[in-house]
Amino acid sequence: MSPSPIHSITFGRAAPGLAVRDIQAAFRFYSEILGMQKVFENGSPVGFMVLKKDAAEIHLSQSRDHAPSTVNAFHMFVEDIDALYAICEAAGVRIIKSLKDKDYGQRAFVFADPDGNRIDVGQRI
């Protein structure tokens, strides 16, 4: 059996896409709480936005009828999870699962953005 052509393809950056009801409110949340910066926007009015901090990138899409899911929208790794958790708590961010060490080798918590998108945050122990 010959190898699949997929083995010769290199994959690059991948970024989660999040639907949000109010893209400007979502931008304020992600910039003020997570320190992300807008690196691209499209539309008039703006209907799509790319936010970035370090290696993390999120693509926001305006969807006025967005309904949050009960599953995590994405997982991201950070280097100081205790500090991020404290920032989220101080800002009144809705914590879905509190910070604790997991049996799979991560310290993790889950929060929800203003649109109910669940973000799973972890740090390797």
Rank of each mutant, 00 (worst) to 15 (best):
P5W: 08
H7Y: 12
P45S: 09
P16D: 11
A86M: 07
P45W: 08
M36D: 07
V93D: 12
P5Y: 09
H75S: 15
N72L: 04
V46Q: 03
V50D: 15
I81W: 08
A19K: 11
Q37K: 14
D65V: 13
I9F: 12
E57F: 06
C88S: 08
K53R: 15
A26Q: 07
A86K: 02
I6H: 04
V46N: 05
C88K: 00
S8M: 13
I119Q: 06
N117P: 00
L99F: 01
R118G: 04
A73D: 09
S2Y: 06
F27G: 02
H7Q: 08
V71Y: 04
A56T: 09
D115T: 02
Q24A: 14
A55Q: 11
D65A: 13
I96T: 14
Y30C: 10
H7F: 03
V110M: 03
V93S: 03
Q123P: 07
I81Y: 05
A90G: 01
A19E: 13
A73K: 08
T70F: 08
Y30A: 11
D115M: 07
K97Y: 01
R13E: 15
I6F: 15
V78T: 15
V78S: 08
A112I: 04
I119W: 01
M76D: 01
K38G: 09
V121C: 04
K52V: 10
I125G: 00
F74Y: 15
Y30T: 05
G35L: 11
F77R: 02
V20D: 13
R28C: 01
V93T: 14
A56V: 14
E57G: 03
D101N: 03
C88D: 11
G122F: 06
M76Q: 02
R94C: 15
G122R: 03
A25Y: 11
P45K: 02
